[in-house]
Design a protein around this nucleic acid. Structure first.
Lengths: 76, 76
DNA sequence: GCGGATTTGTACGTATGTATG
DNA sequence: GCATACATACGTACAAATCCG
């Protein structure tokens, strides 16, 4: 999934990986993406890195974060 | 400048403080704003907090950051 | 051209607060 | 009450590019 040797920043790699899962339909509109803790474990990165990745996805308009609820795939 | 007891997040308080200095003409278009290290010292907050504050200013379109150069007040 | 200082970028870790389930 | 989940804030370390003497 993520490659520490790839010069691409880890948080971008994680963002791309999650974006791919959305595009593939594994994560559907309206559904929550895995929590920060789960993403940490899935990709083996620190929480701060996960948060940066999610921020990228928000910037791209792919997801919406609802405080204390979770982060959801944005409906088309 | 910043008030730890104010429920407003510190990074927003710092962003507002810098925005005020821009608006007041203390920091002029094309000029660099103080470095992250300087802002840390000026406001007594951690670097991460400063970086979040600068990110807010970028989102507001007030400044532009050039890697390894600095962050500059955006020309009108 | 060289080397150190500066400045931003990335990454990790930890603690606490607040709201939700 | 407890577990979950995001928000804020602190700290550290190293990398990369730039600037300046």
């Amino acid at each position: 999934m993520v490659d520490p040797l790839d010069p691409t920043p880890l948080y971008v790699q994680v963002a791309d990986a999650v974006a791919a899962r959305i595009k593939a339909g594994e994560l559907k509109p309206g559904q929550p993406i895995p929590s920060e803790k789960t993403l940490q474990q899935d990709y083996g990165v620190a929480r701060g890195t996960v948060r940066q990745a999610v921020a990228v996805l928000r910037d791209r308009g792919l997801v919406i974060t609802v405080p204390q609820r979770g982060t959801f795939v944005k409906p088309a």
